[in-house]
Design a protein around this nucleic acid. Sequence first.
DNA 1: GGCTTTGTTTTATA
DNA 2: GTATAAAACAAAGC
Length: 295
Amino acid sequence: MPELPEVQTTVNGINGTLQGAVIVDVCHDWAKIFRDSSYARVRKIVRGATITHASRRGKHILIHFSNAHTLIVHMKMTGHLMVGTYKKIKTGFVPTDSQSPLADPFNRFIHVVFTLQDGRSLVFCDARKFGKISIELTEKLSHSPLIAHLGPEPLDASTTVTLFKTQLLKKPKSKIKTVLLDQTIIAGIGNIYSDELLWLSKVHPESRVGNVPPTLFPILFKNTQKVLYDGLKFGGDSTSDYRNIYGEAGVSHKHHKVYQRRNKECPRRGCAGIIERKIVGARSAHFCSVCQVQY
DNA sequence: GGCTTTGTTTTATA
DNA sequence: GTATAAAACAAAGC
């Protein structure tokens, strides 16, 4: 499930190979991918546009053009962007050479293709079709409803432990797992990394934020950054469908301590607990009730 | 064919 | 009115 590390991995990939690329055209086979059914508007703006660079805000990929517009891509559960050479056929899109990452089975889930002047394509692939694409004037980006209400970036230098604590304490009566997933509190954390950071911090996911001892917030903050940096280091988490822009899986999921490890032994040294799975705030939480303290 | 999956939005409740 | 919880929604794999 693309969270901050996966989104950033994709952004880094775009910056590594697509800066200066010119979009010739865009086509699709699923109009609902375009937020507010905006395909016609997106097409009008991106044709002839030059990609300057990409960036990230929360879980949104922002692809900036030299024509003062920015493409906003959200991968939701199973989406990803890939770069290669593809063509449209009656039943969808197929790679046109062996270099394209569509020896990858996910090629059959390509739904949007941006054709580039250099012969390559930037494609959006999404088995569940939950992903969303939209376009906005770059200068209006921060006022977009998609962006405006997002909380601070956990890896930004300007985000201090003090701010982190202040943000979490906006929801003192809520379960900490739920608050960590709230994009208006802290942007970019999803179900996988929230489970992992709570385990590292020895905090039970159902702890009420207001009951967590003040001394634990620096630990929670440090571990939030650690799991996200580790996710980046491992090229993202490919538990589900995530792939980088070359169609390659990351290996972050090979390092999970608790996520999807139900009924396995708690990996903490000296802890004999068994990982449990429980629905918390309508999301699956994985944790060890022996070493993770409920406050 | 019902159940599961997550990110986000919307609706309901205390 | 406010804060929180629950439900809805997207679509497809098993």
